[in-house]
Computed example of a mutant assay.
Amino acid sequence: MFSIEQLQAFVATVETGSFSAAARHLGKVQSVTSQHIINLEIDCNATLFTRTGRYPKLTEVGKKLLPQAQALLSQHQRFKNSAFALTNHTPNEITIALDEGIPFQKLTNIISELELKYPQTTLEFLSASSLDIIDMLSNDQALTGVVFSELIIPDFLDFECIGAVKFDLYIAQFHPLATQVCKNIDDLRMYRQLLIRSRNTLTSSFQLKISPDIWYADNYFLLLELVLQGHGWCLLPNHVATESVQNGSLIKLPLEFKEMGWLANVDVLQHQRHSNQDEFKVLRNLLRNLL
Rank of each mutant, 00 (worst) to 15 (best):
residue 5 E to F: 10
residue 6 Q to D: 00
residue 9 A to G: 01
residue 13 T to V: 06
residue 19 F to R: 02
residue 21 A to E: 15
residue 22 A to K: 02
residue 24 R to S: 10
residue 31 S to P: 08
residue 33 T to L: 11
residue 67 P to E: 03
residue 69 A to T: 07
residue 75 Q to C: 09
residue 77 Q to E: 12
residue 81 N to A: 12
residue 82 S to V: 06
residue 87 T to I: 06
residue 91 P to E: 07
residue 91 P to H: 04
residue 92 N to Y: 01
residue 100 E to I: 00
residue 106 K to R: 09
residue 108 T to A: 15
residue 112 S to L: 01
residue 116 L to D: 14
residue 126 L to R: 12
residue 137 L to A: 03
residue 137 L to T: 01
residue 144 T to Q: 08
residue 145 G to F: 11
residue 147 V to G: 05
residue 147 V to A: 06
residue 148 F to H: 04
residue 149 S to Y: 11
residue 153 I to T: 12
residue 155 D to E: 15
residue 157 L to G: 04
residue 159 F to Q: 10
residue 163 G to L: 00
residue 174 F to C: 08
residue 177 L to V: 05
residue 181 V to I: 13
residue 185 I to H: 12
residue 194 L to P: 02
residue 199 R to P: 00
residue 203 T to K: 11
residue 207 Q to N: 14
residue 216 Y to F: 15
residue 219 N to C: 06
residue 220 Y to F: 15
residue 222 L to G: 09
residue 228 L to E: 03
residue 229 Q to S: 11
residue 232 G to A: 03
residue 235 L to M: 10
residue 238 N to S: 13
residue 240 V to C: 07
residue 254 P to Y: 00
residue 261 G to I: 02
residue 263 L to R: 07
residue 273 R to D: 12
residue 275 S to K: 00
residue 275 S to Y: 13
residue 280 F to L: 01
residue 289 N to F: 10
